[in-house]
Amino acid sequence: MADQSVQRVHKYSENGITTLTLNQPERRNSLSMAMLEALSSELEAIATDSETRVVVLAAHGSVFCAGHDLREIREQLDSHEFQLALFNQCSKVMQQIVNLPRPVIARVAGVATAAGCQLVASCDLAIAAESARFATPGVNIGLFCSTPMVALSRNVSRKHAMEMLLTGEMISAPQAERMGLVNRAVEEQVLDETVYALARTIAGKSGHTLKIGKEAFYRQLEMPLAEAYDYTSRVMADNLMADDAHEGICAFLDKREPEWNDR
């Protein structure tokens, strides 16, 4: 059974949207080992849940996620084995999000720092309240945000990533939007409306097609140009053999709504 530091909530279940809510506001939703294991367990379950089409990652409280639990780290400061296990577990969770065959949308209200910023950057999409703030402040305490750097540098330009990493300073949600760290910064009162409207739009697509597309997106990013085109050409040719591609093309030409079979 997953640790209750992550609450799995089914909302708009008729549309296949699952919300995962970080639920330790008293600890600033920090990514302790227990929190990471709980989140990993929930993501593992969702990966094989055919009813889930889109995941929303949210948090209770005024802080989205403050990164790793520094109290826990201090208690284990002399244990290199624990520290390595902690960062490996965190890296596993971030990769689970990227590899999840469902799109993941971060709903960010409050502060997202260090590994919390990494969590936002690892999601496929992110919507933030205008009051939200982001930082990779490890440099301020002598611990460079090396693992957050992986997700951050794959989502924003090198210059922007380096400025965040080298200064440790907070940036606003509108700044994060301009940098590409989040898709949109919206007024807090319309945050849920915006997040779930986006989730419903995506959930209305073929789940099979979304799975194919998300996997191909991340794989081609790491390829040279010619290799990426060769790979995605094969992906599209294979995609056209799927039932949903046949249905979608026929529905478009017949001017009707498609009926997805997710295969």
Rank of each mutant, 00 (worst) to 15 (best):
A197P: 00
D254P: 02
T136R: 13
M162K: 00
L36Q: 09
S153C: 03
R200S: 10
V195Y: 02
Q4D: 14
I249R: 01
I141S: 10
T201Q: 12
S122A: 14
M236Y: 03
A216N: 06
I171D: 01
S131R: 10
M236R: 05
R107D: 11
Y12H: 15
L22N: 09
R178D: 13
T113G: 07
L181I: 10
A112T: 08
G207V: 04
N99C: 13
R107S: 15
A176W: 00
N88E: 07
V98G: 02
Q76V: 07
L119W: 10
S41H: 14
T147V: 08
N239Y: 05
G142M: 00
A203W: 01
M1W: 05
V6W: 04
E44K: 02
G67C: 09
V235L: 11
P224D: 09
I73C: 06
N261L: 04
P258H: 12
L77Q: 02
A199S: 03
F87P: 01
G180A: 06
G168C: 04
T201C: 06
E177A: 13
A173Y: 03
K159W: 07
R234H: 13
T194A: 13
D238M: 11
D262H: 04
R27H: 09
D3C: 03
A85F: 00
G110W: 09
Q7K: 15
V156R: 03
A106H: 00
G61C: 12
Y231A: 09
S40G: 02
Y229T: 04
A203P: 00
D78I: 12
E257W: 03
E215Y: 03
E14K: 07
R154Q: 02
L210M: 13
S131D: 11
T147K: 10
L70C: 14
A58F: 11
G142K: 06
R154S: 08
L210A: 14
T19Q: 15
N99D: 09
S5K: 08
E177C: 00
E37I: 00
S30Y: 10
V93E: 07
V195L: 14
